[in-house]
Design a protein around this nucleic acid. Structure first.
Lengths: 240, 240
DNA sequence: TGTATATGGTTGTATATACAAGATAGGGGT
DNA sequence: ACCCCTATCTTGTATATACAACCATATACA
């Protein structure tokens, strides 16, 4: 008998993970609901306990479940925490959570650099730059407003990109290998335009991230990322 | 024969992880170095392949190693998150700006741990803990609300400290060398109590930082730091 | 020379089994 | 009523084994 991977292309524990995720997303299993034990899952899915266990362990590592020895396994409270290092490719981050990624392009044009933008990009005031505004969604729910100013000398094909298939950051990483970025984080009250795009109330608290990405050739891009405060958390690991 | 956990209190895979970490930290195994295979490690440490495998898998999840099927396991490039979010000593930060630092102690007492705090500190619910609230000021202007829950077993003299002369973080770093911290950042609307302490309007946007600091002996402290959004920015450097 | 093919080493998946350790409920004893 | 013990559930650790999938190299063949 075949004791290893079936030829379906998908590991068996993945099916269990998907099943559990669906129960949680549809509301069948609310927060703090005790999910079936390892042995129960093993029997239901016709796998060994170690395989069922792997599904539960991975979902626990991903923050979906909570386990405690002797008690059982429970649905954890949903916290959409993103790693600060992964903010640069938000599409991956969303799909890593098992959600669907989509975006809306609000603006995509060439214009003249205002004084502050020109200073941030290290180019003369009034030079031509690309200006884009994109709203990124996690399961159709807006989670990031991205307003970006790009140096056309370092990313000439920016306006021709299909940003429904790729994100600006993914494109920029491809054309100009990024070497460094400086970032500042602050809290702001959402202005009406942003609030409307993110489907939140005006003046509600948001995380605003300014990020300037540089390559060896100079400053490539200057972005302003706004997250609804109650829908997003930045996670960071510090080691001393 | 005993096939399960030894009574030393530490799982066997932890010893393997520690060994690998040390090789990397001392420079014996440089970046991209191919680490011993699962079978080699299993033989060296006298464990089964699955146990050695667990050590490698966990270190991979933690970003220390990289694996690829058919090729092997390699030392990953160190995550440059080190210089991230240097807010651990607000007093130094203020005086570095040439301003005067001061603080106001709003609360300093011993109490019982609520459920969520107990979970964060890894202690039983209802255990005795230290609870403090301090407002830090830059030139008399409040810039941080610090609410902190401390594990008395790891920092017994906490309540006797003179926090007008030293900050909680400085004291904790002295008594229990901190090895790690995990941090999440979010935006919130200031509740009336916090708004009053920070001299801002209620419901105005604030940066809220949750930080859990750990030493080798366990989780030392759990803090909630709230900054007025318009008076504070977090700076971070990311390197790709 | 160039192209298959075989081979051995690596990680990945899966099972069956065993024991350890924490939590809870129930049953007896005093 | 209270304490202790036990049975039984849970998750956690560990082993031995088997096969799959992938990669590189060596070998055989055209």
């Amino acid at each position: 008998m075949n004791t290893a991977t079936p030829n379906t292309g998908e590991p068996r524990y993945a099916a269990i993970k998907r099943h559990i995720r669906r129960q949680i997303e549809t509301g069948s299993w609310p927060v703090h609901f005790q999910v079936p034990s390892e042995n129960q899952l093993a029997q239901e899915f016709g796998v060994s306990r170690m395989t069922a266990r792997r599904a539960l362990t991975e979902l626990t590592d991903e923050g979906v479940l909570m386990r405690s020895q002797g008690l059982g396994t429970f649905v954890a409270e949903p916290v959409p925490a993103g790693s600060l290092l992964e903010v640069r490719n938000i599409a991956d981050e969303v799909s890593a959570r098992g959600h669907s990624y989509s975006n809306r392009i609000l603006l995509l044009q060439e214009c003249e650099a205002a004084a502050d933008v020109a200073r941030a990009l290290g180019i003369p005031e009034g030079a031509r730059i690309f200006h884009s505004i994109i709203v990124h969604c996690d399961n159709e729910l807006p989670i990031q407003w991205e307003e970006r100013f790009t140096n056309p000398g370092l990313a000439p094909d920016y306006l021709q990109q299909d940003f429904s298939a790729t994100t600006p950051n993914a494109y920029l990483s491809r054309v100009a290998p990024l070497t460094e970025a400086d970032t500042t984080v602050e809290a702001i009250a959402a202005k009406p335009a942003i609030a409307a795009a993110l489907a939140i109330e005006a003046n509600s608290a948001c995380l605003q991230i300014w990020r300037r990405t540089k390559s060896s050739a100079g400053t490539v891009s200057f972005a302003r990322l706004v997250h609804p405060g109650n829908r997003y958390r930045l996670g960071a690991q510090l080691r001393f």
